[in-house]
Amino acid sequence: MYNAFFNLLKRDLRLAFRHKSEILNPLFFFVIVVTLFPLGVSPEKQVLAEIGPGIIWVAALLASMLSLDSLFRSDFEDGTLELMLLSEYPLPILILAKIVAHWLITGFPIIIFSPLLGTVMFLSNEAIETLMITLLLGTPILSLIGAIGMALVVALKRGGMLLSLLVLPLYIPVLIFSSNAVGSSMAGLSISGQLYFLAAFLIFCLTLAPIATSAALRVSLE
């Protein structure tokens, strides 16, 4: 079972590294969206520091959502997904491997790049540190919840718009606690409550989301 998990993880990572755009596009999207705000709102330091945490988090959330398509789409089209459903291994484990791979491909680069964007948005050093921690706890949640939505729409031709309708409302708690944690640490307040919530929510999603995703996939591939 562990072998199946790690083999699938390796396969997905290898596939992603052969199509580098899968890794780079969400990252570019993330950077561009954040760049739009100083242009659209105001380049002043006070304004940006005020809205920065929220903007960076909204951008991360959209980037993660738009990259969900790569999670199941190609495997669905060439029939790999169907074979996974038929395999002897428990489906939630295989799906978890795919989600972890997806997070490593799309979520992890965002975390690496976030200090840069934090600096551009005039966040303090502590706030940037918090931003990275919240992204580390939060982006896996986005991938896990997003996988449920993606599994529901994978068989549809134009699922993109629909996916955002299904998934974005469920992302709200992550957005609230994460951007608030970053804002609070700017103000020098304690952030342990928010981080505990994110960690608890992560564990909760880690336990249940793969099961819900496999149920949804079985419906989609019927």
Binding site: L152, V153, A155, L156, G159, L162, L165, L166, P169
Partner: peptide, 9 residues
């Protein structure tokens, strides 16, 4: 979202 999913499938 629920209604959109229902009408899409």
């Amino acid at each position: 979202g629920y209604m959109a999913l229902e009408s899409a499938i």
